[in-house]
Amino acid sequence: MIPAILSRPFSEKTGLIPGTKKGADMEILVLVKHVPASDAAIKVAGDGRTIETAGLSFVLNPYDEYAVEEALKTKEAKGGSVTVLTVGGPETVKTLRHCLALGADKAIRIGVEGGELDGLATSNILADKIKELNPELVFCGKQAIDNDDSQIGPRIAARLGWACLSDASTFVLGDAAWSGERDIEGGKESVEGSLPAVITCDKGLNEPRYANMKGIMMAKKKPLEEVEASPMASKVEMVKLAPPPPRPEPTILGEGPDAIPALIEKLKNEVKVL
């Protein structure tokens, strides 16, 4: 399916439309975040505001894997270069190196003073850097699995006056435009827009590659730049971090079909759905 807005021929192999000029360089930026793995047990630390990080394994945010993959695919089809960018402490370098091992050309870490930043402060720092680097496309995840905000991508697009496709489950790039799909309640919507653009990536967009030995070796020699920035004050202030509210004590109603009458009684009189 080639949307009419995208005039170039479609490549079956990559799912992308090749650029006009051979090697027409496309600057692509990927925003990545270093987060606790999705199966990590999260424990609130004694201060009631942070998590205990001892023994936790941190990874590239799972949605950012799709973002990195889409950037690499785009580069392979169109030429250009892929830069990964994060705002975070020195520990995030591990995740940046992982992205370089996957095939990104360059990495930038922006260190900030002070504690955790809110969506406004984070997106403003990222937007300032994006303006400076002037890419045509920015890929990021649809959501960071630590704060579960899904704010950064659309926020940056609005701040820069760029187009945005959030929660992309398909993405096709043309010369001056793009089209893609996103899940909505009960279906999908197909979206089109102009360049430059911010694309936030959902599961299903692609199959992220794994890092191989050669990639890991090469990553060590790729440029990784570390800079400092001073963020604006956050407007959202942490009051506390707490374990989830307890669910009611579980009741096992019984074994096998014999337990059905007890369940029907609960559905009728307590849950009130019958």
Binding site: I42, N147, D148, M238, V239, L241, P244
Partner: peptide, 19 residues
């Protein structure tokens, strides 16, 4: 004061908003 699930519901964050 707003509370929201974080870490996929493994914790809940309570936030105070300003501005």
């Amino acid at each position: 004061i707003a509370t929201k699930p974080v870490y996929a519901g493994k914790a809940y964050k309570t936030l105070k908003v300003s501005g």
